[in-house]
Design a protein around this nucleic acid. Sequence first.
DNA 1: AAGTAAATTTTTTTT
DNA 2: AAATTTACTT
Length: 795
Amino acid sequence: MELLSTLNPQQRDAVLTTEGPVLILAGAGSGKTRVITVRIAYLIAEKDVAPHNILAVTFTNKAAGEMRERVEQLLAGQKLQSAPLVTTFHSFCVRVLRRDIEALDEGYKKSFTIYDTDDSIKVIKAALKDIGFDEKQLAPRTILSAISNAKNRGENFDDFASKIEFTDERRQAISRVYKIYEERLRNANALDFDDLLIMTVRLLRNNPEIRDKYNDRFKYILVDEYQDTNPLQFSLIGYLTEKQQNICVVGDDAQSIYRFRQADIRNILDFEQHYPKAKVVLLEQNYRSTQTILDVAHAIIENNVEQKKKKLWTSNPGGEKILYFQALDGDGEARFVASQVDELRRRDPRKRIAILYRTNAQSRLFEEALRRYRIEYNIVGGFSFYERAEIKDVISYLKVALNPFDDIALLRVVNTPPRGIGKTTLDEVSRRARSSGASLWETTAVITDLEHKEGINLTPRAIEALRRFKSTIESLAQKIADAGQSDRPVSESVVAAIEDSGYAAMLRAENSDESAARLENLEELVNAAVDYDKQEADGLRDFIDHAALTSDTDKYDRNAAVTMMTVHSAKGLEFPVVFLVGLEDGIFPHSRSINDPKELEEERRLAYVAITRAETLLYVTHSMRRRVYGEEMAAEPSQFLNEMPLDMIRDLSRGQSWLSFAKGGKARSSQYAVSALRGENRESSKPKNLYTGKTYNSSEAIAEFFKKKSIEQPKPSEPKALTGFDKLRAQASQGPNPTASNKAFVPGAHVRHPKYGKGLVLRREGSGDNVKLTVSFPGFGQKKLIEKYANLEPA
DNA sequence: AAGTAAATTTTTTTT
DNA sequence: AAATTTACTT
């Protein structure tokens, strides 16, 4: 049996146990993907399982693509009637919903649209405006992540709302926005990323026949990176495997790095409780890295409390020491990395090298440095092709044509290119849409079809503009429908959206470098559609779904010489040489994780993932100064550096470094940082505030900030005549002050108004009798009040 | 209504 | 520093 010949006994065990639940605990580099792919091939080739009865689920398209490819390789030469379904959670759900969502009977139609994060944010902004809550008080992103977190925990709106205390204005606002958000999406026949999972789970839960259907279809189910599943994904798997229980999950609790997406590590830790008959296979032999690299990774992860003790081993040679470099600033770090890459490439041009960082924003310096060295690189993540404005615009045309209820897509294209439908017109259409509960499209139709135009606050010119827009969309929709009927290629419809909308004409007329680049991107989109036609030919709908669910992370080129990406994106990949850069407190571990022990542990797992990507050579670098928001800050070496066995690290820094101090044992890292900074200050006199990682940007944090301030600053000494500067200062520092007389309604204060009830003061302008307050009253919106007449009470 | 200048914010990580 | 949002001009 040649399929199994490359496997060790444990791996073979994992493949041969085809029936019943199997948990494969696979350490980094232990051949996990090999086991899954061989298992699929084995089921087909040796167990005569029909390929279409097999489902393998991953988290990223990248992983799915890789797996698909390797299964194909293993089965090369075999004639198969069907193919196993290897896909992501989200794509799988779309597939199910496109077929069966109408059985849910919740008003959703098969033509539903998928909203990406951008679209969701727009809905939230609009909702915030409607309830009269200031965006500055509550960032739309915060609300979206609150909603998304709730959804991914498997809660519905009522669960969420019931947990809110009446005193908490912000959470109440979130709850109200949540409600509106759900309504808007439903009206638009749109689902966000999380809804895709929610609706699928609901469909399977409520509908036994459909559940049965998919149970019979997918007799063997495999889940990759199981440690990253969240409660929704967990129940999805549960329903899908109800009948057969032929579930095989692969994962590594040490590599769980998606807690922020509500991934629950207990899903993998408690697998044996959920499936008592589960067979557990441990893969502990690492085939990827040198012993040194494994030792370093192990030394770091050992600092985690919540950790299953296990130790990877390898028969690989000990290998080189870890290489360390301390730079003076971010530029120096990038220069060092580029020079090393240059040298490595010169010695072996085929050696694959990765530069891994914690956040996408760090990529820029490395891009510039590599470009200066004329080194070609491949960058994964960051700006996605499908996120470019022109691409989203054209896709939105197609989305509106397919689902005219999609308000967000409609708003995106209604005046691009300019058609004379401006803010005034749109405000009027939106207002009417909201009061009638109809979509913008329906409202537009009503307005343009009406015989008598009385009562419509629109100029004839605006109405005519709307009419022309409407017919543009209608003829595009007609074209697409015809194309669908006659099996014409998707690319034709894409071209129609670009040309018939006037979009291409607009760009051609602009005739600038930028518009030329945009036109090129649109050509790329057409090319993507042509490629798509060649492969799947599953209709325009599917092409658009693909665009929504594909990020740039997926177009990773396995053979590229130099790849740059975040550590998250690097999971599942391996490289002979890895540069792990920006190892500074506040960056890695990230400042937002530093205060929560649970999150710090996740950062540590992330470091573990990063280190174990390396096969033979690992570089770790950090810089003493770092630019944050355009401001230069001092940076301390990451605590993770300190957790590495120092004798396994070789110092490549010029002169004295943190490492040389740490090795000498003379100074602790923080003391070192201080002395190093002193040295720095000689050449550049810029004051360097120590970057503690704490940022004051949420309003709780701001409240905390003020609290601290008021404690630190003793009460003002006896009233003196304030002069110029002091006066300004006095005005500027009027923050919420509980000890002050309750008469002052300052921003952040809760007040009660005789008519509007409880409200939140947003702004205070003027002085004396002319104090104007901007107050947000839930249910009434923002009101501007003159303090003297408003008759406000503290609440 | 549309384009430009000024002000403000932004950075976790991803489907 | 760069990108996005808002304010202001024509």
